[in-house]
Write a protein that binds this DNA or RNA. Structure first.
Lengths: 210, 210
DNA sequence: GACGACATACCAACTAGTCGGTATGGAAAG
DNA sequence: CTTTCCATACCGACTAGTTGGTATGTCGTC
């Protein structure tokens, strides 16, 4: 407990190491195919340590979903688009930011909870709910800016800030599936371009070339 | 042995029964969590019969992806939107049709290959490719109508028929994930509404209320 | 000396895949 | 016509390996 356990990776607790490993391994192999031993090997932790910190594999999944929310919250809170004064710019900036983080391998840029909910929604309600919380929590933040953008620019209805916020998440999740099917982020980026164009059209914003 | 094995379900071959069961069980539980015994139980077939027709579980997955393509091809070929003379109406009709088939339980209206590719893209290349083939094959059919719509109505570029066709699939796949997270098709339908509105805006088509 | 944080050894249940065997039906031989 | 032969479809007990989970022990710190 000396020092503030430097968010690095060296002096990290077993629990933290398992959680970090879980984000990568589960995104790569899927939840069911990920074994407890996989997680232990990837985090250099023994099985005893695993079950000391998590009472079951399902319990780890829920903790991983919460940890994922925490990590992504930090990532997006630190993103540059919050600085724009026009809320519509913040929405478009969010979409652009999502595109810029499509780098590295597929498991590195895809979404943990989107992956997990597919395998667990019917058989593991607690995990499904944790995933749903994570997605909804993230969508709620974008919804705030969308609502402000609606107020700032007068837009005729037919849709709500809530449904548009969820739609952005649907596009992203779907883009990840296409990326997995094709092996790269290129198709995903093009789908995000379409999403940006849609928002521009909804708000009658002159389009940039993209 | 009388009658001509009425395409119903009674006198169906073991292979066909396994394939039918696979579509439902895998969509409900995911590929990895689906055991060979699950499939045998769901199709009332023995393990011997299973491995007589498929040389491995992975082999079944590939056959199931192909079977899925075959089934969906038939479903969409029989859909009413093909009758419209304006290709843009066919595209919008396709989108509307996708919305009308969001009925029943989640495993009933979600996509087999979208589910499978998430779990297999990194570890089972052959299955991933079968899923990719299925998605691309389906997108190619919509692309035809989109291309025709671009020609019929003069639309300024910035996007291609190909990328828009894939974008429709991304929206649908993402909508399914949201449906799984929330337990119902309502959110998925709203995302499809956004997709329709996007296409209307792209083609400057006066919007219907939706 | 108690308690939290790990390590090691172990287990019962489950899993994909195997293997020897049976049933059926059609074609070739007599 | 009928008998023999063989391929295909199917059966279900069995196995080798894996899985999530546990029981018990050690070690450093308060």
């Amino acid at each position: 407990m000396e020092a503030k356990m430097s968010a690095g990776q060296q002096k990290q607790s077993a629990r933290g190491k398992i959680l970090d490993a879980a984000l990568m391994v589960i995104r790569a192999k899927g939840y069911t195919a990920t074994t407890v031993d996989d997680l232990c090997a990837a985090s250099n932790v023994t099985k005893g340590a695993f079950f000391h910190h998590f009472k079951s594999k399902d319990d780890l999944a829920i903790a991983a979903a919460d940890y994922w929310s925490e990590m992504t919250d930090k990532l997006f809170a630190a993103a540059p688009y919050h600085d724009y004064s026009d809320p519509l710019d913040r929405v478009l900036g969010y979409i652009d930011f999502r595109k810029t983080i499509l780098t590295g391998t597929v498991p590195e840029f895809t979404c943990l909870v989107g992956t997990m909910v597919q395998e667990t929604y019917d058989s593991h309600p607690a995990i499904r709910d944790a995933c749903a919380r994570s997605i909804r929590g993230h969508a709620a933040k974008i919804e705030t800016d969308i609502s402000a953008a609606i107020k700032a620019h007068g837009v005729k209805a037919g849709w709500t800030a809530h449904s548009l916020a969820l739609h952005t998440q649907a596009v992203l999740q779907g883009a990840f599936i296409l990326a997995k099917a094709t092996g790269g982020p290129k198709i995903a980026a093009e789908s995000i371009n379409h999403l940006r164009r849609y928002v521009e059209l909804l708000f009658n914003r002159p389009q940039k070339k993209s």
